[in-house]
């Protein structure tokens, strides 16, 4: 009985993972004034909100009905947190698409950040399939890379005579998405190994 609920939860979280990944993948097109992309990220954000609420409800129901323990408990609690992180990622990307940026250097740094974030998504996908070896080390290294691009972008902005606050927020949001993906990775390690680890 509980196995079916856990499978359904995992399936919903994987769906949310896809939505969040897609929103990160396209968000810079919005920053380059693509209105269709802006509409798509808004749709994704709404879908993620609904899915996150469903996951939250299903987790609470599973806890109430089955009083899970051990791996089941770690899985359910982690699914709630992971789901919230994905939902937050879609909030951040939707906000990014509402801004505009034409500075080539910054756009290149933002592209670098997004590429690295997408690699983080792929590492997490493999972890969902059971490959958690080196997960922490890989995510840590990738998040370091995101942070490095963030610092380069911020350095560039500090040298500009006129800098939009939107660009600062964009850089900050992309850096924050890296942190959220690190937290998701830490939660997967908690599910699989019962260890509480810190990935930045």
């Amino acid at each position: 009985m509980i196995e079916r609920r856990l499978e359904a939860l995992k399936s919903d979280v994987l769906e949310l993972h896809k939505l969040a990944k897609r929103s990160v993948e396209i968000c810079l097109k919005g920053l380059r004034s693509d209105d269709e992309i802006r509409r798509e990220t808004a749709r994704i954000e709404q879908m993620a909100d609904v899915l996150n609420t469903d996951i939250d409800f299903n987790c609470v129901t599973a806890i109430a009905l089955y009083q899970p323990v051990a791996r089941d408990l770690r899985f359910i609690i982690s699914m709630m947190k992971i789901s919230s992180s994905y939902e937050r990622i879609t909030d951040l990307t939707q906000e990014i698409t509402m801004y505009e940026c034409s500075d080539e250097f910054l756009l290149e740094k933002f592209d670098n950040m997004v590429d690295t974030l997408l690699t983080m998504f792929e590492v997490i996908e493999r972890a969902y399939e059971g490959d958690t070896e080196n997960l922490r080390r890989q995510l840590w290294a990738l998040d370091d890379l995101v942070d490095r691009y963030y610092v380069e972008a911020m350095d560039r902005m500090s040298e500009m005579s006129r800098c939009s606050v939107d660009w600062i927020i964009t850089a900050r949001h992309l850096e924050r998405i890296g942190d959220l993906l690190g937290k998701i990775g830490a939660r997967i390690i908690f599910i699989e190994e019962g260890r509480r680890v810190w990935i930045k």
Partner: peptide, 11 residues
């Protein structure tokens, strides 16, 4: 034990 049992049988 309830959060992270060490033995598979316990789990």
């Amino acid at each position: 034990v309830f959060e992270n049992p060490k033995e598979k049988l316990t789990e």
